[in-house]
Write a protein that binds this DNA or RNA. Structure first.
Length: 113
DNA sequence: TGTATGACCCTGA
DNA sequence: CTCAGGGCCATAC
């Protein structure tokens, strides 16, 4: 698979994450058909055109923590955006309950094809 | 070919 | 809860 194809898939998955909910890098990778290539998701987001206006802030580590270094600008920006959507954050981590629920997941599966 | 480096993941202690 | 160690996949040199 070509690099652009991978990115396209990743961007689509990320773009479909419902507001107020979050998904881990690993989940995004699997949903995009990339197996365990969780690290690629980060790369893809890094390379994502700003014009796409992707909800990148809704992507977190598997344990619910923010991937950027604590204290960094990006870290603050991400927590700000999440809080703005009503997502509770405690010491760099989000609460268990906000992960994408089953209903939303089914919807995502449908929108793929 | 070989090594290093990530917006990562998982398990066991 | 934290930490270490090994796994994973693509890229860059």
């Amino acid at each position: 698979m070509k690099p652009e194809e991978r990115n396209r898939r990743i961007w689509q998955v990320v773009g479909e994450i419902p507001e107020g909910q979050v998904m881990s890098y690993g989940e995004v990778a699997r949903r995009a058909g990339l197996g365990r290539a969780a690290r690629l998701v980060g790369k893809a987001l890094q390379a994502a055109p700003k014009a796409l206006a992707l909800p990148w802030h809704r992507v977190l580590r598997a344990d619910g923590s923010i991937a950027f270094p604590a204290g960094s600008r990006a870290h603050r920006e991400q927590s700000r955006r999440l809080r703005q959507e009503g997502v509770r954050i405690e010491s760099g981590k989000v609460r268990e309950s906000v992960h994408v629920d089953k209903a939303s997941m089914d919807k995502l599966l449908w929108s793929m094809e």
